[in-house]
Design a protein around this nucleic acid. Sequence first.
DNA 1: CTGAAAGCGCTTACAG
DNA 2: CTGAAAGCGCTTACAG
Lengths: 343, 343
Amino acid sequence: MSKPTAKVTSLDVAKRAGVSQPTVSRVFSRGSMVRAGLREKVEKAANELGYRPNTLARSLITGKSRTIGVVVAYLDNPFYPEALEKLSAALNVEGYHISIFFAANLAEEVDPVVEKLLDQQVDGMILASVSMSNKLTQRLDEVGIPFVLFNRGQLGQNIACVTAANYAGGRKAAEFLVAGGHKHIAHISGWQKSLNGQQRQAGFVDYLKETGMKPLACLDGQFNRDNAAQATRELFDRKQKPDAIFVGNDHMAFAVLETLKIELGLRVPEDVSVIGYDDVQMAGWRTHNLTTLRQPANRMVEATTTMLLEMIDQPTTKRKKIEIDSELIIRGSARIPQNWSKK
Amino acid sequence: MSKPTAKVTSLDVAKRAGVSQPTVSRVFSRGSMVRAGLREKVEKAANELGYRPNTLARSLITGKSRTIGVVVAYLDNPFYPEALEKLSAALNVEGYHISIFFAANLAEEVDPVVEKLLDQQVDGMILASVSMSNKLTQRLDEVGIPFVLFNRGQLGQNIACVTAANYAGGRKAAEFLVAGGHKHIAHISGWQKSLNGQQRQAGFVDYLKETGMKPLACLDGQFNRDNAAQATRELFDRKQKPDAIFVGNDHMAFAVLETLKIELGLRVPEDVSVIGYDDVQMAGWRTHNLTTLRQPANRMVEATTTMLLEMIDQPTTKRKKIEIDSELIIRGSARIPQNWSKK
DNA sequence: CTGAAAGCGCTTACAG
DNA sequence: CTGAAAGCGCTTACAG
């Protein structure tokens, strides 16, 4: 085991190359002008010594850490691992890297994590499926750190969000089920304290209402498997049982499918149609074969990083609330209306 | 939108509190002695100003960033999101945070990522399901940055790894299937260029050999769903079809189950028994109900962080190759031998 | 284009 | 216990 070599600095390189320390610095900061001859000497010396600039020192001066803080509520729902990978890739391309924290969506958990990120001097933050106290959003504004909420809407002028077009998505789910001839349509909703959950439900309920129907029931599944399974049981304990269920996200829909098929012995879609939301990869597995509204992680990630980077580059950038269209992905878990191809 | 307040530094706090700047610094570095009276004045001033120490500056001096670089191959296999959350939690407790990168397990992808992490002055690195070129491990040794491989063995004296006891786990799978009276046992293996994949297979094959049997076939699924599904088809295209399959991890086992039940119309375990490896949460879903070898993420994470932190605190720490026992988790996907309770 | 000088925001000996 | 001074490893005006 060789003993650790002392850390090599720009000064070491400068000495070996016979130039000044700032010249070394210039060679390693892009866009600086150094004569070709010198540059080569410096690069040679740097290679021989294994020199790489210390980004800490650089960040201290420039005031830019090129770090984005990412806080995620949980990774159980496979939408988030998928999104996280894409987020990382998109940010890496722009020369940023990620400092990641996990925090349940509670002010007590989120706020301290955001403070830690602030201490790390992140250039911006992405909060996935998490909202923040007003005190904290205000503090971020004071400090001038841009942030965008990913897959979580939050009311308020100055809050940038990227979400699916949840209301419209809820409508599409209802439209498809109604067109499929279902008469008793229930909803196992996303968390009703989140805008995602509320809006998907609102779109669903509104569409039904406009066609003179109303939901058989709306139960809050809270984006949680166990709650969704329990809600499914409740639905089938009633006199009037549903012939279709719109579920607030795929993650819950898998639990609904399981309860329906394995516990209650029902056939999908013959006895019950099921529609989810997200179109995570698993939705396409033949095991689930889930009809769902696609929440396109790629496009959401792109919108998020683009907006965040803009806000970083020019702090006066308007904070937008971006909604990405959800496309209905038709698979086998919900009866397909005749002539649906018209759509 | 209030304009960003200028960044407040320890000097600002010092002025307001009427003390010197180092005193402010002492109040915020733990273990420093400051008289109670002064401390309060400083804390009051700091609160009023919203001061928090800049960790970049601190790290530059102390040479400790309290950042751990984590590189993960991919998050498709749900074992990794689960492990990542636990890793983050364990590290946070010790005052560290994570800088995360994704890189496929190829030297061309891993090496540059490790260099980036080095630039960030991470205190240590965890490589999950990824191995490194010798050149790079050597470089890390020179620079004195400790690292441990998580769920990926790598030969070599100086490389710390934490894995399941894969060889023993492979044996247990074989033992259970043999005891269950299966006569034609196949293996869809983990990637045969990884130690995980090799050792699980070796344990499985050796146990069979010792009982005078041999595997019907060993096909490399490469930890990949599509390959696993394809291998399943191949197995059932043969004259002699398997009555049991040991699959190299759960992630692939789900694809095998799907192919068996939905595509080939077989019953599990009546027609075929299936055993996986990992015991990810999904394995417990009634949809899959997968008998599997538990690779305990908690204990692996604990071993990893403990060893890494030791290596950070005292660089002379011996680098161990830690193997965590895999317990057989019996569920419904494999026939249960009579009298198995003896075990 | 290049060097000497100052400084980013802290911590840490060093005196007192 | 506290302050004055030096310095971590860089970048960035400022002269030349």
